[in-house]
């Protein structure tokens, strides 16, 4: 009788151990798959493009000759677009999330807005491009300018920033609010001294991730009429622009093999910019996480 129970248990245990191993193997495979694909991609881009990546590539404009082609206009365009998108999307996004989490009454209407925000985060970027074309380019007569591009991009990443910021604010322990209230703080004082500092790491992580998406964004900017060839330095927000992914795409679709390599060199630049942005996010986040 006793033996039987032991045997049954052992069987069960070995079964569970096998299952555990299986699960581990599956997850390892999933991780490796992503890593291998990423490594292949990076190796391919780097081997293909490194030959064209030099100082001249960063400081000259696009050209019909692969050896003269450079990425200056695209880098400047991306920087200009980001210089509009970052403040606009951060101010609007964080403001919206603070209102929704701290001030808005918890009723059906608020829930409706929140649901729609989550949905907006999944809307294809072309649709935002159409919106930008109709509202910013045509209705508000901004033309095919940096301003229109930056605002369109802000709209595109806004939902993600709002959702991430809301999560960050929501995860602040209730006790911290109560402590602040107990000391007689007003709502605004609490937001300023408790909520924002504590939510900063989460907000920034969401913001940088969505900004990184913005840096790699093509479709919506093509829609509002971003250029492909530009040979001057923009001097204001109403000038035309091109951005890195559009320039890379344009090179990649050219018939000449040399241009594929130029496109790869452009991709390396884009990758480096993204890595720098993400590292910056991590540094800022760590700095603020330590405090709380």
């Amino acid at each position: 009788m006793k033996n039987k129970v032991v045997v049954a248990n052992e069987k069960q245990i070995s079964k569970r151990i096998t299952r555990n191993k299986l699960a581990k193997g599956l997850f390892l495979a999933a991780t490796l798959f992503g890593m291998i694909v990423l490594a292949t991609l990076i190796v391919r881009i780097v081997t293909q493009g490194i030959g064209y990546l030099d100082f001249g590539f960063l400081t000259s404009y696009a050209s019909r000759r692969p050896e003269d082609a450079g990425i200056k206009a695209a880098i400047l365009g991306t920087v200009w677009i980001m210089s509009i998108t970052i403040p606009v999307s951060l101010i609007l996004g964080v403001g919206t999330s603070i209102y929704l989490e701290e001030y808005a009454p918890k009723n059906k209407f608020t829930r409706f807005i929140e649901l729609n925000l989550a949905n907006l985060a999944g809307v294809p970027s072309v649709v935002f491009g159409l919106l930008g074309l109709t509202v910013f380019v045509r209705l508000l007569e901004m033309g095919r300018s940096i301003l229109a591009g930056g605002l369109t991009m802000s709209l595109l990443i806004l939902p993600v920033i709002v959702v991430a910021s809301k999560e960050a604010i929501r995860s602040i322990p209730q006790e911290q609010y109560e402590a602040a209230y107990a000391m007689g703080a007003t709502k605004w004082q609490i937001i300023r001294t408790v909520v924002l500092p504590a939510a900063t790491p989460g907000i920034l992580t969401g913001a940088i991730l969505s900004l990184s998406r913005g840096v790699g964004e093509t479709a919506s900017l093509l829609m509002i009429g971003a250029m492909t060839f530009i040979a001057y330095t923009p001097t204001g927000v109403l000038d035309g622009f091109t951005v890195l992914p559009i320039q890379i795409f344009s090179w990649a679709s050219r018939p000449q093999v040399e241009f594929q390599a130029v496109a790869a060199a452009g991709s390396i630049v884009l990758l480096i910019i993204l890595i720098v942005m993400n590292s910056l996010a991590i540094v800022i986040r760590n700095k603020y996480s330590k405090r709380y």
Binding site: A62, R64, G225, M227, T228, F229, I230, A231
Partner: peptide
């Protein structure tokens, strides 16, 4: 693109953009 490239070299003050 080729035309605009040359045009920009000869007219550095001009702004030719191509989409």
């Amino acid at each position: 693109e080729g035309v605009a490239e040359e045009f920009s070299i000869e007219n550095p003050q001009a702004r030719a953009t191509i989409g």
